[in-house]
Design a binder for these strands. Structure first.
Lengths: 190, 190, 190, 190
DNA sequence: CATGAATGAGCTTTCATTCAT
DNA sequence: TATGAATGAAAGCTCATTCAT
């Protein structure tokens, strides 16, 4: 099996993401994925062990790109609220502009599509945010509640806004984004 | 002549929900559904036109049961905050106790598994909540922001808590639930 | 199993003939036949042992009606040519006016749709025509050749004209019919 | 990489013809066709879009081989009667020696088994015979009647003789064939 | 006599994967 | 490395027939 980041490998991952996004896992056969990537079905198995492996790898790479984006320009030395706003806006930016990736992650996180193992690996990237929240709680700036709640009320809502926007029911402008941030912050600040 | 018992129909819908929840749409074949429901594969087609139709119907019925639950004991004559808390707690109760149904809805809402038409039909039940919010905004109790935001920051987070709980990562007690409600209310109250 | 000529039995045979004619045997399921006859699928089995039996019976009855028609107004006492013309015109009349029945017989006679046994039974009706030919041959009016040839060149061509007419490629008027009879007679007369 | 051998395609068409001839379209399932051709059921779909497409293609190829045979050693420069006899004997030879192909064509032409489009395409090959007849009519050798009649009384009877022979009811020797030709010619000559 | 419900067997077709080059 | 051909297994669905009333 080949090493990362050949052009074909990337084309295959992109094709997989597109087909799963548009048709769902159950209607994204290997033959179509190969065709969309401009490659023979047999070639897929030079890069991936099987379909599940390909989807797992895709998940992890998208998750990694998401995490990287989330902490752009952030440093743990920032004051709590400033640091939080930077991360939040990074994430919002990703969810609302890289809609395809965000929608794919949302599918993965809400279905039994991904192996439990890969799911766990995908979680580790979030640590800096958890650290920030802990600091905020020590400093008496953020409510002393479970990080699950903090995540549920600040980051997770962005997934809903992304989905709404994708369904063309709703378009987010800057004012709305500011309202959204206020809501997020208000829900967790002390 | 035998009569078409709605028992079989219900058994089929339950089997479908279980299999899709555990394995995903793509790994819930009609043969397994039939076996789990205790009928012949052919019998499915006496009750549903095809697989998609069965899933659509299941979605709409679960959605309806969810909505019914959401507005239990609620009346539009309640004060805004009290009314909101009742609805919110109803929904929390459903999501955290009828986990299977809630998880199924979450899968449906985050994948292309359901027909767009059924999806639209599923939305209409929410109207009383939208009305409540509108009243709250007129009365200067709730922030004058889009209902998409209000939903994203008060109801949608419960889906995350449900998923977390289902993955056995986290158990919600009453204190946490109260924290959750505070976070929800803080995010939208003026 | 019921006796002949109940209304339902006849409706079933008619429905069968129509569906097989329009769609072919392979696309004429019992359920459709029942629906078209206005009857429950189970009812079919009160009148016929199974599908094959129903088709066999249909074949034999249509064949009988055809034969009856063929010898209308004919008597063995007629002179050879007159007798032959009467029979020939009777058959032509049937093939060109009872197109559905004729087309059905044509399907049966050119496919393995019918049991060999029923096929044999269907042949016996033709005897008077064979007798007529034999007389004609004894009298030196008709060529001394096998009755298979006589049939092939006088009666069988009408099946082609029937099919052509059914396909709307061609319409037979009286002049043409007379030409057709001349061709038939010329081919076998001495 | 293996190359798509036309051997498999041909084996599939032959298997289809055999099974349809012996059992009828409705009793020639893809699984049996595959087995008889020595390939997997899935392989069929590398060569044909679906069952109907396979049967259509088979029809057209058999029809083409028939037509080629029909005009062997024929040239439009031949005198009318000689030319006609050559074609007629070619066709007789085909029908009586390539019985399987002939019987298959007969099934196709007398049932709704074939798409109307393919049926039309199958007709174009006959043109040289039509031209010959037209010439014969201009020269006052052949009766001035519709080509449908000419076909019905000269070519079509051979289908009956073929079917009779196939049912082992009758064997054609050379004398009989000469009688048959006489009958054909007598029916249309002026 | 008649029914609509119910079904096991089997249908056509597709799938993830492997083969042979 | 890369391929298109090939496939066994299984998918969704339909069918002729039987069941239970």
């Amino acid at each position: 099996m080949r090493v990362k980041s050949s052009e074909k490998r990337i084309a295959l991952l992109e094709a997989t993401l597109n087909l799963i996004n548009n048709n769902g896992f159950h209607a994204a056969p290997m033959s179509k994925i190969a065709k969309l990537a401009g490659v023979s079905p047999a070639t897929i198995y030079l890069y991936f062990a099987n379909k599940q492996d390909m989807v797992n790898q895709l998940y992890l790479e998208v998750k990694a790109s998401f995490s990287e984006h989330a902490f752009k320009n952030y440093s743990p030395s920032f004051p709590v609220k400033e640091g939080f706003e930077i991360i939040w806006r990074n994430i919002a930016d990703y969810k609302l502009h890289q809609v395809e990736e965000a929608y794919f992650l949302s599918q993965c996180d809400n279905t039994p599509m991904i192996d439990e193992e890969s799911r766990q690996i995908g979680l580790i990237h979030l640590q800096p945010l958890l650290n920030l929240w802990e600091r905020g709680q020590k400093d008496g700036i953020i409510k002393p509640i479970s990080p699950y709640l903090l995540y549920a009320y600040t980051i997770y809502p962005l997934a809903f806004l992304m989905t709404s926007q994708k369904s063309a029911h709703y378009q987010l402008d800057n004012t709305t984004l500011t309202h959204a941030f206020s809501a997020a912050w208000d829900s967790i600040k002390l």
